[in-house]
Nucleic acid binder design. Structure first.
Length: 721
DNA sequence: AGCACGCCGACT
DNA sequence: GTCGGCGTGCTC
């Protein structure tokens, strides 16, 4: 047959490496191979079999072809090729980013984690258990069906220990898992409203590749639509892939999915999952044992032979874009996969990315709208734009806001004060000479953290003791300027001494489990006023919360970044959605110097379509995405001039063609970060294909450059420029 | 990326 | 006389 195989290795080189084998067949494509490389051994993935190696090399033999896991299926390999081409990243590195870490070791994967367990007789087992052993009863009930170690461990802290005892006694046995066919009768949900019904039917009826943009306001029951669409796909005997933006949101959604589909084998994949377990989950998906995969962006690369539906929740979220290494967009890869496999993909959001909204506008995506809150009687919160210009404020809070907070407290309701800036004050300034505390390693000012008595850089983490006097002039009058969550917290404690004030930001929840504890306090009614950053905005329901006060949002209105408004709208809509439930209509107060700004007006009307239309018109005028496609070449060096010089040289090498525009190299918005000076070069074009072909040639030329001492990387479809 | 080879300053 | 600095080049 074939004498040679082409292996993709995790090295920053564009090409693959050929090795000799005694007998290679097409079945080896997608397998892992241990090969000698330089003077050590490495593991790679066979991407091709070839009759004759390319070029004149001293071809070495493959050491072993591992068959410890299912070979990467052809569609996944094709996805990797696409990803490598599109993001101009070496194929070997794409594959190694996409695979669970466990598969990067040059050793066979022996998975006890992939093993599944089941009770010999669950009913008899339950009769043997003492009535008081609640956890054991639950465990026994679960074990009526085959479960993985991971699933069992997730049930309760001591669950796995008990299972091991039962295994020893023989009440539980390891089984060869055969996924039970999904029975729709097992998944019963609430009655849908008309809009939800329409959406579910459209998704279930889709044939072949069909992208949907599910635009649903907060509380409109998007998740219920997902659940129904998932049930329909499972009932057709298909697997389903669900992507969520953050690890924090997976447990919630996972719980809800498990509750709805108790017998369905579900695998959760994110960076919080241990290596072995992730590998086991990957294998379970690849073999078709797992029917439902839920995970963060890395889960988009899970092999699923019977994939029938892809869902991307909160599709606008920037965490779907990886910000280093392979800078891929999991949302875009999800759409590509759906196209590849000829299945439906649902992009869900209350505030879709303007790229997605535009795709719906031009008919590339089909829009499904959920405009009502799903719970009968629940209404969208009322938004009040409170003008603060030339108004006396108390530590940034308007008299009216304080009064509204007081009223809610009197009614024993919860209030959220939202300020997306942690610390005590963002600036520490000398009243005499104007000196400001700044980070030595970044072009950023220090944030004052008064409680810990430190100045801290929010970009690199550098800390400094609080200077007793101004280092510039020796003056003692050092003033905190502006406000952060700590300062707001202090004010609210002073102003409402009988209320429990709970601050929730990255500082207050640094310790493991403290965020969960805070959520517990909120639900248990042990918090009256929440002060928090965007951590609080996402995905959590607080039934007693009826008022949200937004402070200090204006900064996002006039930021240099053309996506700032889009992000601000999404953030405010999200935090506004925390206010109010069925019994009480929520209220949102946005303190602003610019109440007449169109963004706030659209927000107050709950009219995302209006905001999107005006924003897209502006993007069109200014030739910004989605009307052009962009790529940014980023460079960093110890001296800014070196980075700029490299980019200037790179610019001369760009094989420009008609309709592809190259801008001048400029220092990055945050020029200095962690002692590195950064600069960038923007390339854009209305034609994705032309941009792509320019990039391919350009990268070849840049990689051939010798003696380059700056670090550089290309970012295709950058979120920040 | 690693990891070699390779040619110039301060040490047992 | 060597140890080791990191510049340049290679990995099928």
């Amino acid at each position: 047959m074939f004498e040679y195989v082409r292996v993709a290795l995790d090295v920053p080189l564009a090409g693959c490496f050929d090795y000799r084998v005694e007998l290679a067949t097409a079945a080896d494509i997608g397998r892992r191979a241990v090969v000698p490389f330089g003077n050590k051994r490495r593991v790679g993935v066979i991407v091709e079999t070839v009759a004759e190696p390319a070029g004149q090399y001293a071809i070495k033999p493959v050491e072993t072809i591992l068959d410890d896991m299912p070979a990467l299926p052809a569609d996944l390999l094709e996805l990797f090729h696409f990803c490598a081409d599109y993001y101009q990243h070496p194929l070997g590195q794409v594959i190694h980013t996409a695979l669970p870490g466990r598969f990067r070791e040059p050793a066979p994967f022996r998975s006890k984690e992939a093993q599944r367990y089941q009770a010999v007789d669950a009913v008899a087992l339950r009769q043997l258990l003492p009535a008081r052993a609640v956890m054991q009863h639950r465990l026994a009930t679960e074990l009526a069906h085959s479960r993985s170690e991971a699933e069992l461990r997730a049930l309760a802290p001591g669950a796995w220990k008990v299972v091991q005892q039962w295994l020893a006694i023989g009440w539980v046995k390891a089984v060869q898992a055969v996924p039970p066919p999904f029975d729709p009768a097992d998944a019963v949900g609430p009655v849908l409203n008309a809009e939800q019904q329409t959406a579910v039917e459209a998704i279930a009826a889709a044939e072949g590749f069909q992208p949907f943009l599910l635009h649903g306001v907060t509380g409109s029951g998007k998740t219920e639509v997902y659940l129904r669409a998932i049930a329909a796909a499972l009932a057709r005997g298909r697997q389903v892939l669900v992507l969520v933006p953050e690890i924090n949101l997976t447990p919630q959604l996972e719980t809800r999915f498990r509750a709805r589909f108790p017998k369905v084998s579900l695998v959760s994949l994110h960076s919080g999952v241990a290596d072995g377990e992730r590998a086991a989950g990957w294998v379970a998906a690849a073999t078709g044992q797992a029917r439902l995969v839920i995970g963060t962006r890395l889960a988009v690369f899970t092999p699923m032979p019977e994939l029938g539906l892809v869902i991307v929740d909160e599709e606008h979220d920037s965490s779907f874009k990886q910000q280093d290494g392979l800078r891929y967009s999991a949302r875009d890869m999800a759409v590509y996969r759906a196209r590849q496999r000829g299945v439906a993909v649902v992009l869900g959001s209350a505030t879709p990315a303007l790229e997605s909204w535009h795709n719906a506008e031009i008919g590339r995506y089909r829009r499904l709208g959920l405009s009502q809150r799903a719970v009968v009687g629940a209404e969208q919160p009322e938004v009040l734009l409170l003008p603060t210009r030339r108004q006396p404020l108390q530590e940034g809070l308007h008299r009216h806001s304080l009064q509204a907070i007081g009223e809610r407290l009197a009614r024993r309701e919860q209030v959220l004060v939202f300020l997306n800036r942690r610390g005590y004050a963002p600036v520490m300034m000398c009243g005499e000479c104007g000196w400001m505390a700044a980070c030595r390693r970044c072009s950023a000012r220090f944030t004052l953290h008064l409680r810990e008595r430190v100045l801290r850089c929010h970009y690199c983490g550098l800390e400094d003791r609080l200077p007793p006097v101004c280092p510039g002039c020796g003056n003692q009058d050092l003033r905190p300027l502006g406000q952060g969550t700590q300062r707001l917290e202090d004010l609210l404690i002073a102003r409402f001494p009988h209320a429990q004030v709970l601050r929730i930001d990255r500082d207050s929840t640094r310790r493991k489990g403290s965020f969960a504890a805070a959520l517990d306090d909120i639900h248990g009614g042990r918090a009256d006023i929440l002060v928090g950053t965007q951590m609080l905005a996402k995905g959590h329901d607080f039934p007693r919360l009826t008022l949200v006060v937004v402070v200090g949002a204006d900064g996002g209105l006039f930021a240099a970044d053309f996506r700032a408004a889009e992000r601000l709208y999404a953030q405010l809509a999200q935090v506004a959605g925390r206010a109010g439930r069925a019994e009480h209509r929520g209220e949102v107060i946005v303190q602003t110097d610019f109440p007449e700004h169109p963004l706030y007006e659209a927000l107050a009307q709950g009219d995302y379509a209006a905001f999107a239309a005006s924003e897209l018109a502006e993007r069109h005028r200014a030739s910004f995405p989605p009307f052009v496609h962009q790529a940014v070449l980023r460079a960093e060096a110890a001296e800014i001039e070196d980075a700029l010089a490299f980019l200037r040289q790179a610019a001369t090498l760009a094989p420009l063609c008609d309709g592809v525009e190259l801008f001048d190299p400029v220092p990055a918005a945050m020029q200095r970060l962690n002692d590195r000076e950064r600069a960038q070069l923007l390339l854009q074009s209305p034609h994705r294909g032309r941009l792509q072909s320019v990039l391919a040639d350009w990268m070849r030329a840049l990689r051939a450059l010798k003696g380059v001492k700056v670090r550089w990387a290309l970012d295709v479809d950058p979120l920040e420029i």
